[in-house]
């Protein structure tokens, strides 16, 4: 298993703190170097992290192979973008009706410090039942983010505590675990749903 140290997380947090005191708030840019634009996530079969789902089961990316998958990052202390992403995805899944069963949908937290298995279970319980919540040790979350060529950084908040900046795209993988495309969380249902449906239909064609 590859465990490259992801230093940007800690460095961004510490570095940001002083700046935040001066500027008074969060900052979007900084030492948290972003993955080059256009760099694609690894195939699920080549990813090397292990996490725990919201039901307490050990999970790894290869578990997702066999069905198309939607994977996205977020955290449950996120008041705006994350609930919006989860409810948008829930809307897509509602539109897919029973085809939603032929899809893996995984929400990986970038804030394992606060997002315990129980916190994830409670949170995903408010959205479509197909959505799984994955969390785990800090180093495994960092590895997941890296394998998806995503990014995140911890940013202190002015009232104490912290918030997280994170990649907001939803990653779509085909049934063999290869990256297919990204869907923006705000993408209208009439664009998002056909993309997902195509991935599901390709799976059934491949099976015959």
């Amino acid at each position: 298993m590859r465990r490259r140290a992801v230093l940007k997380f800690g460095a961004a947090g510490v570095g940001a703190f002083g700046l935040t005191l001066a500027v008074g708030w969060w900052r979007a840019d900084g030492p948290g170097a972003l993955a080059p634009v256009g760099e694609r996530p690894l195939p699920l079969s080549e990813m090397g992290f292990r996490l725990t789902d919201h039901e307490g089961q050990l999970v790894e990316p290869s578990d997702l192979i066999g069905q198309p998958s939607l994977v996205f990052f977020g955290f449950t202390y996120c008041p705006d973008v994350c609930p919006t992403t989860l409810s948008d995805i829930s809307g897509w899944l509602d539109a897919l009706a029973e085809d939603a069963d032929r899809l893996n949908v995984v929400f990986i937290t970038v804030d394992p410090e606060r997002d315990t298995v129980d916190a994830m279970a409670e949170y995903v319980g408010y959205f479509h039942p197909a959505i799984r919540g994955w969390t785990g040790p800090e180093d495994q979350v960092a590895q997941a983010v890296e394998d998806f060529r995503a990014t995140y950084e911890k940013v202190p908040a002015e009232v104490g505590g912290y918030t997280m900046n994170h990649t907001a795209s939803v990653f779509l993988f085909d049934a063999s675990g290869d990256f297919a495309s990204t869907i923006d969380y705000h993408e209208p249902r009439e664009y998002a749903v056909p993309k997902i449906r195509r991935a599901i239909e390709e799976t059934s064609e491949g099976a015959t």
């Binding site: 840019d29 705006d80 973008v81 990014t151 918030t163 907001a168």
Partner: peptide
């Protein structure tokens, strides 16, 4: 106890951020 108007935005690299 504390209320602010924030703006969520997404950078060109797809990073979601939030600021007052």
């Amino acid at each position: 106890k504390m209320l602010e108007i924030h703006r969520s935005s997404t950078t060109a690299e797809g990073l979601s951020t939030m600021a007052p």
